[in-house]
């Protein structure tokens, strides 16, 4: 919820935002009508990817940044289908 309020506040103040949520909180992004949201299939507390998994982390960030160029209306939600995978043991 916290980031939802932050996203709405910045967007209303003229700063475009994109938020990365884990799947467990997709409904929060939807009921709060956030401007742009990327959803990952990751466990809570691990929104961008596993520790020591820079490839997945980059994929998620690029998907989020891409919404700045592609989204045409508020409430845009894009779900990344890649399932969770553990990162390297010693990142």
């Amino acid at each position: 919820m916290s980031v939802g309020h932050v996203a709405r506040g910045f967007e209303e103040a003229g700063i475009p935002t994109v938020s990365v949520f884990v799947r467990a909180f997709r409904h929060v992004a939807e009921v709060m009508k956030l401007p742009r949201t990327v959803i990952t299939q990751h466990p809570m507390g691990r929104p961008l990817g596993g520790p020591g998994d820079p490839q997945r982390q980059r994929t998620v960030i690029e998907a989020a940044l891409g919404l700045f160029d592609s989204a045409t209306a508020g409430g845009t939600v894009v779900e990344i289908g890649d399932t969770w995978r553990p990162g390297a043991v010693n990142p």
Partner: peptide
């Protein structure tokens, strides 16, 4: 978590 956070519902999405 499917029932969490549903009290903060809005009708419209801001967009710039």
């Amino acid at each position: 978590y499917e029932k969490s956070g549903r009290s903060h519902e809005y009708d419209t999405a801001p967009f710039v």
